[in-house]
Each structure stands twice: as structure tokens, then as C-alpha cells.
Design a protein around this nucleic acid. Structure first.
Lengths: 246, 246
DNA sequence: CATTTGTTTGTACTATTGTACAAATAAGTC
DNA sequence: GACTTATTTGTACAATAGTACAAACAAATG
């Protein structure tokens, strides 16, 4: 990654810039952007506050750099996996492979290696919830393209399901993914110890299985699929309960 | 809306306390806890900064009050809907009604009325992502009980699916729910306008349908269901791709 | 060696933060 | 009316925020 090869791999200069990035990534992903001060980051990285300013100019610049560091490699990884998945003949198997290709890089825990990684995904989740402006811009730019590619690939597996439906369901997938990375301990708690929310392997398998099933469900049989919707509220089959709010 | 009927419907004293709560709820849910200052809240509520301190003592106290204002009514509403759903005979229909009972109060948009409401749910999502300590304490206390009730009810509909599996899938449901409230515009964007992520009715229907399908999926057919897992990686049926990370 | 370049340190500045508190005002009670 | 209580205002304070910048230091090149 670093352009010019370092003269000797001395331990005395462990690349402060990298340490700051790693510390910031960790702190941001756990506490959010605003709760973490530049001084917190510097301390966690064993650096001087001024050093952060030197390398990244501003706090926003630091966040930006974290994104730019991860986005390209992660999307590349996803594309590779997606391409491999698309080569599978059987639509059923292909669908599962596609979902796996989407989920896997998001969970991979390469410390700071190019595969994306759970920490970065968690950071994205947190920034998304905080409504971070820097993050919002980058996400729409960088991820929508990949998202569309996955949606298209899934659509091909499920010709009966309209694209809009796939969009919704893959949106749910991303939400589930994010939330699992943000609050893994909740799974452990609610399962009374039978599951470990922090176990990436476990989470991936359950998530893939559940998501594939949701994708394969028949589309909403409401005649008003698209935007203009009639006044009749969607009638739940056997639920006499209250009507949709608003 | 205002609880105690005001002496005369003068516009001069519109219950400042309530206005502050509403403003804080809105601001927190959109920007997170840390990005919003007490002064921001006061200004949005048309109040004086000191007034916030007077009513809620601290900023944490304000957040606490928001939770306490909503938790009880919302869980009550959920319990009612759950009880009604459980009376449905057919397991298939019952499952859908249960899921709907879980989802509906979270989306209801009663301005600040007792039904819970999308704004409060969004706030919970944001606090959860930020790792807010005040929120974390209340959530584990207040919501786990309801969550267990729902999980149990779902288990009864699906005797073939182990409880752990249900826990995972309902966790995914909550994540999807949260994310849809946090980033509704993403759905609109990715669907190229065919769907409206901010339309609660639309979101609920898609979410319920997808979730019910995911619940009905057969459990992972891995012999190592519980915690101790052997070394053999879970073999995806047709995916020759990379093994589970870490 | 001297010089240049890149990095780290220390400190300082201004803005904003949460909170405290006294004074002012409104509301309610007798 | 006078008196008490509740609320709102205005201002102040200490702490912390992000950032700027000069000095110190390190490394490499000539």
C-alpha cells in the first residue's frame, strides 16, 4: 500500500500515520464520530494531538481518509466474489453465493488489511446512524454502484420478484448486518448464551440463510406495487389489528 | 396532545417542558446525542438553555426522560397487539400477526402520543449505534422482556426451528427496522424512485413479508447448532469461495 | 559535515460545551 | 391586594473542543 518501500523495517518508526488511522477507526466505530476527540485518538495511537492535524489536516479529513483507505479494496473484493458467484449455474445456489459475497467482506476481520473488515463496516453503521455528512457523501458515491450490481445479480436469480422488492429486502439485509456488528452482545443475551453475536462465522451463516429465505419469498401480492397507492389499506390476511399508521 | 387541559388555550404557555422533550427527541434521533448541544435543543424548542437544566437537570437526564416517556406505553401497545395475535389459530397467520405486532408500534407516527413512534425508534437506533451508556442501560432493562415474549410467541408458531435461530432472525428484524428508519432515502435512491423508504405503510408491509419468510426458513442444518463448534468450516453448498474469515 | 525534508512535539487560541445560579417574571393561593 | 411557588431568563464559569503554529527533532541526500 505504501508507495515508496521503507528502507529498513525498523521498529522505531511504526508509521504513526497508520497508528492514528487504526485508533481513529476503532474509536469512531465504537463511540461515534462526535464523542471521540482528536486528543482521544492521539492518545490511543500513542501520538501527539498535533500529529493528527499534520497528517490529516482536520478531523473530517481523518474520517475521509479512513473511508478512502477501505472503500476501493472492499468493493474490489466484493466484485470478485460476486463475479465468482455469478458463474454458478443453479439459481438457488447462485443466490446464496451472491448473498454470501455481499456479506463476507463486511465481516472479515483482517486487522487493517484490504478486505474491508468488520471494524470498518461497524464504523459505517455508526456514521450512518449519526447522520454524518462526510460519510453520507462518500457512501452514496462509492457504495451505490456495488449495491446496484448485487441487486441486479439477485434479480436474475429471481425473475418472479420485482426489482423494488429486491431493493427493500437487500436494504433489510444491510440493516441486519449493521446491527449485528453494532450490538452483538444482544444476541448472546437474548439467546441466553446459546449463540455468540460476536462470532463472525456464526453471524454470517445465520444472516445468509435468513436473507436467502426472505429473498425467495413471493412478492407482495398487492396490485399497487409502485408508487401511486390507492386508499385501501393493505389488508393483512388474518390480522384484525389496527391499520397502518399515519 | 397536551396532558393536562390548559386553563385557557393561550399561546403563551405551550408547556415548555414538552416542547423541549419533543425538540430533543427529534434532534437526537437525527444527529445523535453528542452532536446536539443543550443550546441547540433550547433554540429548537424556543426555550432558554437554562430552562433545560431546570426541567431535566442534566443532558443525560433529558435523554432518560425521553426514554421513560415512551418505553412503558410502547411496550404496553406491543403487548396488546401480541396478545391479540396469539389468539389466532392458524400458525402461519399467527406468525405474521406477531411480526406485525412487533413492527407496527415502532413505526407509528403519533406526534408524541403514547404509541411509541418512529421518531423514538429512530432515536433508539441512533443511541444504539453511538453506544450511548444511558440508553444501553434502559434498553436491556426495558426491552429484553418484551423481546423474549415475542421470541417465545414466534417459537410456538415454528416448533421445528430452534430458539437460537429465532433469536438471530428477530435480531435481524430489529436491525432492518432500525436501518429503514435511519436511512429511508437509501431505499428511494436504490429503487430509482419506485419505492418510498419514508412511507411507513410500505416499509412495514415489505418488512413483515420478508421477515415472516426468513422465520419460516428451515434451521441451519449444521449438526453443531450450539456454542461448541468443530473445526470444519460451514460448507456452503455451491460456493467454492473463501472460507469464513478470522 | 551542512542542508533539506519530513515528522513530532508543545503550547496557545478561540469557540463551544454542560452546568450553575441569581435575578426576573408568571402563576397560584390565601 | 400580599405572599408563595414555579418557571424562565441572562449571564458566568470551568472544561474541553478543533485547529494553528513555531520550535525541536529525525532521516536522508548532497
Amino acid at each position: 500500500m505504501v508507495s515508496k518501500l521503507p528502507r529498513k523495517e525498523t521498529s522505531r518508526k511504526p508509521n504513526m500515520r497508520e497508528a492514528i488511522l487504526a485508533a481513529a477507526e476503532e474509536l469512531f466505530s465504537v463511540n461515534g464520530f462526535n464523542a471521540v476527540s482528536v486528543r482521544d485518538i492521539a492518545q490511543a495511537a500513542g501520538a501527539n494531538p498535533g500529529s493528527v492535524t499534520y497528517h490529516f489536516k482536520t478531523k473530517d479529513g481523518l474520517l475521509l481518509e479512513i473511508y478512502q483507505r477501505h472503500c476501493a479494496p472492499m468493493n474490489l473484493r466484493r466484485s470478485e466474489l460476486l463475479a465468482a458467484a455469478k458463474r454458478i449455474r443453479d439459481p438457488q445456489d447462485r443466490l446464496e453465493a451472491i448473498v454470501r459475497a455481499y456479506v463476507l467482506p463486511a465481516f472479515s476481520s483482517g486487522s487493517d488489511l484490504a478486505g474491508g473488515g468488520a471494524r470498518f463496516t461497524r464504523l459505517r453503521a455508526t456514521m450512518s446512524a449519526e447522520g454524518n455528512e462526510v460519510a453520507r457523501r462518500i457512501i452514496a458515491q462509492t457504495f451505490d454502484e456495488t449495491s446496484h450490481a448485487f441487486i441486479d445479480a439477485i434479480c436474475e436469480c429471481l425473475p418472479a420478484v420485482p426489482r423494488t422488492e429486491i431493493v427493500w429486502r437487500s436494504h433489510f439485509l444491510l440493516g441486519a448486518l449493521y446491527y449485528t456488528l453494532v450490538t452483538p452482545e444482544r444476541v448472546s443475551r437474548l439467546s441466553r448464551g446459546d449463540a455468540d453475536g460476536s462470532d463472525a462465522g456464526e453471524a454470517i451463516e445465520h444472516l445468509v440463510q435468513a436473507t436467502v429465505a426472505s429473498f425467495q419469498a413471493p412478492a407482495l401480492d398487492r396490485p399497487e406495487l409502485a408508487r401511486p397507492r390507492p386508499a385501501t389499506p393493505p389488508k393483512a390476511r388474518a390480522n384484525p389489528g389496527p391499520v397502518v399508521p399515519r
